[in-house]
Design a protein around this nucleic acid. Structure first.
Lengths: 274, 274
DNA sequence: CCCAGCGATTGGTAACACCATTCTAGGGAG
DNA sequence: CTCCCTAGAATGGTGTTACCAATCGCTGGG
């Protein structure tokens, strides 16, 4: 479960940092992985991450029962910390705490799979491919409509910025600077999702960022971004700038069709157990 | 903020009950609103719901600062439960708790808007229309692809059940039995989302259920379901049963186009403040 | 203007009473 | 003898209280 090759610091910190990218205020970010640490307490996060990964991975299978005493002993924390951690896990649907019986691991169907931490945990464990596939399908569903909505309701600044990023993408793509290309790519998709005016779409910005990062980490990005992809980014940006929802939507659809195509080899093995 | 006309018992209980509908195991359910109460402790849920609604509504605006002492005093609970409640709220991104400063209400951008409880709270407060709109747009994005995926990978039982529910829908629709129609409608969409094989899609079943319920509650459902809608349900079911993803997808798209049309009057006023 | 120290407020620990739930053991009936 | 029902005990979460540690905003003094 450790072939990720990256630190495991899910949820907020990464979310914030990634959101910063697309927001246009802070120009750097997206390149600072370890520093900010977790938001609040360090004690919870540690045991939260550990148990979260164990549940979302295949250790701690559904039905497994934990007790506060075990947690307390295993992590050397107080009962209170164990309790609060379990409460969070319970609020994510990963466990269910009942009197006299303990803390039971819940079936996957009751997980909050849109919780950034759950997504992160699943991406850093086994089932990574399945998760990447699910998320990419979600992108394919949402992003075209988001692009269309952005073409309808983006602000002038956002439209301008979309065109700018598309140009940057072309420059970086042709130069072969993959790192910065990734960064700009994330910014592009984040911008469109948030400019859509639909918060449910906007909230997926983190997800898309994580997927894009995962994709490069897995070497699924072409060594040089394909010219067609660059063209499509520009086409979408132009459509958004010009207020042509239809074009933005279909452009994004084509863009994602390529993404899907590129990722196909990853999810043929029918990874999941079910 | 109390014109909902329905009890406020968000999140899990309703989620479970609704999920039961689409799952096909238990035939009843979906008709038992109050009994199961909240999952675990009753003490948390009470203050959690209250503060959650206050934040997601416009009381407690962004930047507002709470302290544990206030909570403790206001609800007459111990510091511990106040802390655990705040921890949950924090894990949903609604607040951020820092030493010496207190518990600060976070901007909407950092909320976990896919958390069932957040959705529920927002649906039962002001901004209900905006939320309904966001969720409907999400449906429009996701459900067509989910239907296509279901046509590709549903089990034999699921395909059969889809056709069955579609027939039931026609019968109930022509009979004008709106309550049961709603129930079957939820079951239909839930089934397709879960049969898609994509957990991210499947997890939206609760959302769709809530939206459908909200739609009827607001009287946006035609008194008699339109024949076209019945036809489309059957067409989608047939396409799923026959393994024709393309047809399932376009059928669902048309279906949702009608839904969108029916809801348009609701979201013209540009409800949101921003 | 800067710096130090105060004090407010959360973070974390510990020990307790309580109670719902489950399991088990015992006894009674068939 | 077997089965079932009940009563009680063991278990483990729920809620409360008290306490100390750590942090960090603010204020006041230099």
């Amino acid at each position: 479960m450790a072939e990720t090759g990256e630190g495991s610091r899910p949820g907020y910190s990464s979310a914030v940092e990634l959101r910063g990218v697309g927001h246009g205020k802070r120009e750097h970010a997206a390149a600072s992985p370890p520093p900010p640490a977790t938001d609040a307490a360090v004690l919870h996060s540690s045991v939260l991450d550990t148990i979260g990964e164990e549940i979302t991975g295949d250790a701690l299978p559904e039905g497994h029962v934990l007790t506060l005493e075990q947690i307390r002993e295993r992590f050397g924390v107080s009962r209170t910390v164990a309790r609060e951690t379990m409460r969070i896990l319970e609020s994510m649907g990963l466990v269910r705490s009942r009197r006299r019986v303990g803390i039971t691991v819940q079936p996957r169907a009751s997980w909050n799979v849109y919780d950034p931490r759950v997504i992160w945990w699943r991406l850093s464990g086994p089932g990574r491919n399945a998760q990447l596939r699910s998320l990419t399908e979600l992108r394919i569903a949402v992003e075209p409509l988001a692009a269309g909505a952005a073409a309808r309701s983006a602000s002038a600044a956002e439209r301008e910025r979309a065109v700018g990023i598309a140009a940057t993408l072309r420059a970086l793509g042709e130069a072969g600077d993959l790192d910065r290309f990734l960064e700009a790519d994330i910014a592009f998709h984040t911008l469109l999702l948030q400019a859509s005016g639909n918060e449910m779409f906007g909230a997926l910005a983190d997800v898309v960022a994580v997927v894009l990062q995962g994709r490069t980490q897995l070497g699924l990005m072409p060594h040089h971004p394909e010219p067609a992809a660059l063209d499509l980014h520009e086409a979408v940006a132009d459509a958004v700038a010009g207020g042509r929802p239809r074009d933005a939507e279909t452009g994004m659809r084509e863009l994602l069709a390529e993404v899907r195509h590129a990722m196909l080899p990853l999810w043929e093995p029918r990874t999941r157990k079910g």
